[in-house]
Computed example of a mutant assay.
Amino acid sequence: MSELICQYCSHHNIGGALARCMHCGAPLRAAAHKVAAAVESTAHVVEKTAEKTVETAEAAVKVVAGYPRWQWRALGILIAVFVFVGVIVARSCSFSLPSMPLAPPPAGTGTGVSALPESMRSGSSCEHFDAAQQVDKCVIVAGSPLLAGGIAGSKELTFYAQSSSPQHLNDIIRRWRTAGGTVVSDGQVFAAVGPSATVWYADTRSGLSLETGTFTGKAAAQTFLTRAGLTR
Rank of each mutant, 00 (worst) to 15 (best):
P105K: 10
P101L: 14
A131S: 09
A107L: 11
A107H: 14
A115V: 02
G123W: 02
L116H: 05
V135R: 08
A131C: 00
R121L: 07
K137E: 09
H128Y: 10
D136F: 07
P105M: 13
H128N: 02
G112A: 12
F129Q: 08
S124T: 05
T111P: 01
T109H: 08
T109K: 07
C138Q: 02
S99W: 11
R121C: 00
E127L: 08
D136A: 08
L116P: 03
G110W: 05
S94T: 15
S94E: 15
R121G: 00
D130V: 02
L97M: 14
F129V: 00
P117G: 10
F129R: 05
Q134N: 13
T111V: 04
P101S: 12
A103E: 14
C126F: 03
P104F: 12
F95E: 15
G108T: 05
L97N: 13
M120D: 02
S96K: 15
L97W: 11
S119R: 08
S99A: 15
D130W: 09
P105D: 12
P105F: 07
L116S: 04
D130P: 02
A131L: 10
A103I: 09
P106V: 10
A115R: 08
S125N: 11
P117M: 06
S122W: 01
G110E: 04
P98R: 12
D136V: 02
K137F: 03
M100N: 09
P106D: 09
A107T: 05
G108K: 04
E118P: 00
E118M: 06
Q133Y: 07
G123K: 01
F95P: 00
V135C: 02
H128R: 10
D136E: 13
V113F: 08
S96I: 09
L116K: 04
V135N: 06
E118C: 00
G110A: 06
P104A: 15
M100W: 07
G108A: 10
T111S: 14
A103N: 11
D130F: 07
C126Y: 05
Q134F: 03
G123A: 12
S114R: 12
D130H: 05
A131M: 06
R121W: 01
S119H: 05
C126M: 04
S122G: 07
P104C: 12
A103C: 06
